[in-house]
């Protein structure tokens, strides 16, 4: 394989009529990687925070995500329980994120709540999110010890907590936050815009292909 590698790279250099990059040319590409400059950022998302929130909401709605407003974090267990009752859901797989587990779930009696990875057949999951991107109503979720990726895909309904203060304008701002958050990439970064869908049968859009059929964003005012 090493020889394949060298041959492919050699072909490329031959086509480019040069040897290994050196000098200024090398500095230039290294600088690009180090400084990772933004390309054009669409003006649409460059707004004051309150308008960014409104943009997030309308774009998420357009992508068929459903929004439920939370006035306080403490209201989350009750709101989730009510949602599940209304939708005939009696089991919930929750991320073990301290932000969720620290809440008082003691009064909830219509839900069997577990903390684990998702399995085929799970009807609903609850997770937190890393940020929301107003530009297209997109959620960003990171994998980690308390946020297994399967929770985002296997259950039929995915409930996600997002705080208004986590909403940024453009994807670039999300990358900036991610770089600040940690030096290394998590195994998985999910950008999620609405529930799963497919138009593979006769170009007619159907919701709920392989991923969640419903995406519920619990938007916390903070």
């Amino acid at each position: 394989m090493t020889s394949s590698r060298n041959q492919i790279l050699g072909n490329i250099r031959r086509g480019l009529q040069r040897d290994l990059l050196t000098g200024d040319a090398l500095d230039q590409v290294r600088t690009r990687l180090r400084e990772h400059p933004a390309n054009t950022v669409p003006a649409r998302s460059q707004l004051p925070q309150d308008q960014q929130i409104a943009l997030f909401e309308s774009m998420a709605n357009e992508a068929a995500a459903e929004l439920i407003e939370l006035k306080t974090l403490e209201a989350l267990p009750g709101t989730v329980a009510e949602f599940c009752r209304e939708n005939g859901i009696d089991q919930l797989v929750s991320a073990s994120d301290p932000a969720l587990t620290a809440l008082d779930w003691s009064g909830i009696d219509n839900l069997e709540i577990t903390h684990r990875v998702a399995q085929a057949g799970d009807s609903a999951s609850l997770t937190t999110s890393f940020c929301g991107i107003a530009e297209t109503g997109t959620l960003m979720l990171l994998s980690g010890p308390h946020s297994p990726t399967t929770l985002n895909f296997l259950p039929d309904t995915h409930l996600v907590l997002l705080k208004q203060s986590q909403i940024v304008g453009a994807y670039e701002e999300a990358w900036a936050r991610l770089r600040q958050h940690s030096d290394a990439m998590p195994r998985t970064v999910n950008m999620i815009t609405g529930p799963s869908r497919s138009a593979d049968i006769e170009q007619k859009l159907q919701m709920g292909a392989h991923g969640p059929k419903r995406l519920i964003i619990l938007l916390l005012r903070d």
Binding site: R187, T188, N190, G211
Partner: peptide
């Protein structure tokens, strides 16, 4: 491609699961 504002799932994968991860 589809005229969507953004595709539903844009997923970045970096390496295998981390030691503490529960899945992946």
């Amino acid at each position: 491609a589809t005229g969507q504002e953004f595709t539903v799932y844009n997923t970045l994968s970096s390496g295998p699961r981390r030691p503490e991860d529960q899945d992946g």
